Computed example of a mutant assay.
Amino acid sequence: MPKRILKGVVVGASANKTISVLVERDVMHPIYRKPVRCSKKYAAHDEHNKYKVGDIVEIIESAPISKTKKWIVAA
């Protein structure tokens, strides 16, 4: 099964080797049939502390690294 790849914006980079990535997507409202923007934050592993707030990154699904980290930043 292929691993999922998501694209988002870094919104937090204060923790060591961890960044928070905000991923937004458009979904159709089930009743009103209008596009609605949904967002979700993911904790991603950043081995070299390379990314800062505002950077656009791609994250790849991986085996669990910690309790909340299940994504790795694509190099």
Results as ranks from 00 to 15, higher is better:
27 V>P: 06
31 I>G: 02
15 A>F: 07
11 V>T: 13
29 H>P: 01
5 I>Y: 11
22 L>M: 11
17 K>T: 14
35 P>D: 00
4 R>P: 03
23 V>L: 07
21 V>P: 03
12 G>F: 04
26 D>A: 04
24 E>I: 00
5 I>L: 11
32 Y>V: 00
12 G>D: 12
26 D>M: 12
26 D>Y: 12
34 K>F: 03
29 H>N: 09
39 S>P: 08
23 V>T: 01
37 R>G: 05
43 A>S: 06
9 V>Q: 13
19 I>C: 05
19 I>E: 04
17 K>N: 15
44 A>V: 08
30 P>G: 06
22 L>W: 05
4 R>L: 13
47 E>H: 09
45 H>C: 07
42 Y>C: 00
29 H>F: 02
29 H>R: 06
3 K>C: 00
3 K>D: 04
49 N>T: 04
39 S>W: 09
26 D>C: 11
10 V>S: 05
15 A>S: 08
34 K>N: 03
16 N>G: 00
19 I>H: 02
44 A>M: 04
15 A>K: 14
16 N>V: 13
32 Y>D: 04
21 V>A: 07
36 V>Q: 11
39 S>C: 07
32 Y>Q: 09
38 C>Q: 10
32 Y>W: 01
19 I>Q: 03
42 Y>W: 03
20 S>V: 15
39 S>E: 14
44 A>L: 11
22 L>R: 14
13 A>H: 13
4 R>F: 11
48 H>K: 15
36 V>A: 05
34 K>L: 13
26 D>V: 15
17 K>C: 05
22 L>H: 01
7 K>E: 13
31 I>M: 06
36 V>Y: 12
17 K>W: 12
43 A>Q: 11
2 P>A: 04
29 H>A: 10
4 R>A: 13
38 C>V: 13
21 V>D: 07
4 R>K: 15
11 V>M: 01
49 N>S: 06
48 H>C: 05
24 E>N: 11
36 V>L: 12
13 A>Y: 00
26 D>G: 01
28 M>G: 05
19 I>R: 02
3 K>G: 00
27 V>Q: 09
32 Y>L: 15
31 I>L: 15
11 V>D: 01
21 V>N: 06
49 N>K: 09
6 L>N: 07
33 R>T: 07
27 V>K: 15
15 A>V: 05
10 V>L: 10
45 H>D: 04
28 M>E: 14
30 P>C: 03
44 A>W: 02
2 P>N: 08
33 R>I: 11
23 V>F: 05
18 T>G: 02
32 Y>E: 09
4 R>Y: 10
10 V>A: 08
41 K>N: 11
12 G>S: 14
45 H>T: 02
24 E>G: 01
27 V>R: 13
40 K>Y: 06
9 V>L: 08
27 V>N: 12
9 V>N: 00
11 V>C: 01
39 S>L: 09
